[in-house]
């Protein structure tokens, strides 16, 4: 019983993050020249939301954030290429290959060595999670958004508050 509890604790994701950031990625901190690490759980999102204005762009962002339980960003920048390997991402991808996750966008540029993927998590017909993996030779960024992500609201933010216009159509896979 004790071992089951310990195992369960090890398997638990951090806070309410619904994917577990693998150790292979956390180790990249030591190699990175710059690291951006943003962890906003439900309470922090609620706190931040209180300080968003009720007008204009911030009001839209406030509405978007109201359905979210967490936003997690890890972004690593490196001085040179080759500091990270595709194998570093495999434990993360393994979590996203099974239901309820679905990959909706996969773009690979062998020439530039760039790879970008967008996954959504669906439950009962609603999108309850979004994960973006953006990989470049000298930069690796993972974004995990937990909660009710409304693509309409995300698209509605397009052109404002720094959010791009994101079409709701499915992307092509390479």
């Amino acid at each position: 019983m004790k071992w089951l509890i310990v195992g369960a604790l090890i398997a638990l994701p951090l806070a309410a993050q619904d994917i577990k950031m693998p150790a292979s990625l956390e180790r990249l901190r030591e190699k990175a020249s710059e690291v951006v690490d943003v962890t906003l759980d439900a309470s922090m999102l609620q706190l931040a939301s209180r300080f968003l204005s009720d007008k204009g762009d911030q009001a839209k962002a406030k509405k978007l954030v109201s359905g979210l339980k967490g936003i997690y960003v890890r972004s690593f920048e490196f001085d040179r290429a080759g500091e990270w390997e595709p194998a570093d991402l495999e434990p993360l991808r393994a979590q996203l290959k099974t239901a309820p996750w679905t990959r909706i966008v996969g773009v690979v540029s062998n020439k530039k060595g760039e790879n970008a993927e967008v996954y959504i998590k669906s439950e009962n017909g609603q999108i309850t999670g979004l994960t973006v993996i953006a990989a470049e030779p000298r930069e690796l960024t993972i974004v995990n958004i937990v909660g009710f992500v409304d693509p309409d609201q995300l698209a509605d933010l397009g052109g404002h508050f720094g959010i791009p216009r994101l079409e709701k159509k499915q992307g092509q896979k390479d």
Binding site: R29, A32, S33, E34, V35, V36, D37, V38, T39, S53, D57, Q58, F161, G162
Partner: peptide
């Protein structure tokens, strides 16, 4: 600060 967690963007306003 290069590895700090408190990277600050320009205020949206």
């Amino acid at each position: 600060v290069a590895a700090a967690l408190e990277s600050v963007p320009e205020p949206a306003a």
